[in-house]
Amino acid sequence: MSHYESISYYFPELVMSLKQTLLMVSIAMGIGGGLGLLIGTQLFLSQMNQKKSLSVSYIILNSYVNVIRSFPFLLLVVALIPMTRWLVGTGFGPIAASVSLSVVSIAIYARLVEQVLLDIPVGVLELADCLGVSSWQFVYHFLWLEARSGLVLSLTSMLISLVSYSTVMGVVGGGGIGDFAIRYGYQRYETAVMYTAVTIMILIVGLIQFIGSFIAKKIDKRMDR
């Protein structure tokens, strides 16, 4: 079977794997982006408001982020199977796989958000304090809007990491483009199929980076100065 025939033969499975990757990554991005933003903001606020010692909320959230980010991902996927079954009723499939990806995406984005917020100029924070704004006004108008470009770039980095992590979700039946490359390319000695899948992943990552960088540049208020 020629390279072209091999790719044509497995094309339906390739399309299905792309849909599975899109589903897993989309769910994890939505959950990780939302909760990661809130947790990262809370980590920043806890450090900013500390007096003599860090708050209990900071210690708990910071510990969660540190443990999840340092945990070997494949082992984390297996360890979370009981929780996944409790949440979605099954430990296998793309929806179940998105649970593990979501847990990791929250930790990744939370730390990136915290780092971006720490880079905000002190003068901006002092201005907010002088104006006597409310807590919500401070977070939205002086933190998120000021750091919006960095937050988008951080979300882009998190999304690229999720695409990478999704390649091992075949261990829990999640499928995806990575699982397709291994099952139909590597294990069946179809090198054309495997390298086609790898090329598609590279293109996806490149597209994500391009879109993220484009949006970040457009909304960067420093470009208007």
Rank of each mutant, 00 (worst) to 15 (best):
H3E: 13
E5S: 09
S8L: 12
E13H: 11
L14S: 03
M16I: 02
M16G: 02
L18G: 15
K19M: 11
T21I: 04
T21L: 01
M24F: 06
S26W: 10
I27Q: 04
M29Q: 04
I39P: 00
T41Y: 00
Q50P: 03
S53L: 12
S53D: 07
S57K: 14
I60G: 14
N62C: 11
V65L: 10
N66M: 12
V67Q: 10
S70H: 06
P72R: 12
F73E: 04
V77T: 08
L80Y: 05
M83N: 08
T84L: 05
R85P: 01
W86L: 14
F92T: 09
P94E: 09
A96S: 13
A97P: 04
A97M: 06
A97Y: 01
S100H: 03
L101G: 00
V104Q: 00
V104C: 01
Y109I: 09
V113K: 02
V116T: 13
D119K: 14
I120C: 02
L125A: 08
L125F: 13
E126N: 15
L127M: 14
D129F: 07
D129I: 09
D129M: 11
F138Y: 15
V139L: 10
A147R: 05
R148M: 15
S149P: 09
L151I: 13
L155A: 12
I160C: 04
S161N: 13
S164Q: 08
M169W: 01
M169R: 02
V171L: 13
G173N: 06
I177S: 01
F180R: 01
R183S: 10
M194P: 00
I200A: 02
I208V: 10
Q209V: 08
F210P: 02
A216D: 07
K217Y: 11
K218Q: 14
I219G: 07
K221E: 12
M223F: 07
R225L: 08
